[in-house]
Design a protein around this nucleic acid. Sequence first.
DNA 1: AGCATCTTACTGACTGTTCAGTTATTTACT
DNA 2: AGTAAATAACTGAACAGTCAGTAAGATGCT
Lengths: 202, 202
Amino acid sequence: MDVFGESGLAAARLEDIAKRAGVSKGTIYLYFPNKETLFCEMIRQLVGDTIIKAQERAIATSASAMEQLADYAHSVWQHIRTPMFEKLHRLSIGELRNFPSLLEFFQREVPGRNVQAIAGILRHGIATGEFREMDEMESARMFQALILSHGIWCAQRERNALVAHLTDEEVLAQLLDFFLGAVRKDADSRPAAPASSAANKA
Amino acid sequence: MDVFGESGLAAARLEDIAKRAGVSKGTIYLYFPNKETLFCEMIRQLVGDTIIKAQERAIATSASAMEQLADYAHSVWQHIRTPMFEKLHRLSIGELRNFPSLLEFFQREVPGRNVQAIAGILRHGIATGEFREMDEMESARMFQALILSHGIWCAQRERNALVAHLTDEEVLAQLLDFFLGAVRKDADSRPAAPASSAANKA
DNA sequence: AGCATCTTACTGACTGTTCAGTTATTTACT
DNA sequence: AGTAAATAACTGAACAGTCAGTAAGATGCT
């Protein structure tokens, strides 16, 4: 990942990978038929690791939904802000479109699982009355969109004026705040039903 | 862009670019000293085009802030959903980190300008009382995060379960709905019926 | 135990190919 | 004729992938 993540699939040199792994180039070919397969196996492995880490993000179901959400967001944010995730994401954008099944796998397992988890918390919050009525999958997707974009921007903070003046903590706090503002049940509930989201006129 | 966008900087073949441009490879070297420069000039050119297109997104200042926002979102969404933008974005993620000044330029001119424009609309809406008090740059950034992530997901709709079941129009309507829910002033006299009619004016 | 054979893991020099960049030549226009 | 623009054939470096060879241990035989 050090090497692929630095230069992408095409520009990465197998000798560099071998050196980084402490073996010779020939050895790689004892385990992988070619460069592409090595690349794909690496992605698969790392996505696997990510899944395991995600499963460790235990949700304290005793807490309020808002606390659960904050905890979970914090945990996801920490993961998104690792160099590892940044590389994985960059490769998934730049290279994985040439490996459609792998892209599908990545999308299903990484953002997909996140959205599921968030949706679960939202559902809980709706049940307890902390959150307004809504399509929880839809809102969870919104959350994922917010946290992912901000993670990417923060990864290049010094080149990105949008977040250059903010710390990681501030960014997370802002997006949590914004999201909570959108899902929290306020003093008076609004008439806009969740089913009215414009799927009708089509 | 057809060729670079398909394979990235390293894997793109100059002969393919020449063929696509209807010239021979040598001709390219009459205009560009090398492959990297050609690539950078292309990005610069396309970002320039994007800026011009963005400036054409006239805002009818007579309309309500909510209508302005819906119109602007619609226009930005149309742009984000072009193959052109998808490629530009993919390259900006995958390749531009090796050209820091170019990345900075891209970030400033593309998402930066968008956020500025949205912030302007929000400011207007706050002044007219349509929107609640807020940091409008912050909220505009949230909007950008929402629309950008969804644009990327929709570009690979068939490989991405998050949006596979939704049309472009539905996605846009959902995210506008969500965003408006977060910035709209609540307890006031809001026209309840057309709240979700953002995408179906046409 | 001593020795021989087999096996596994690895190496790195080598090969063939691909392709960025160059140059000698042709084309087209004034 | 002169010259600017374009070409197509060429060159050389980089590099993916190969393979003959090495080394270290395991197995088996006396």
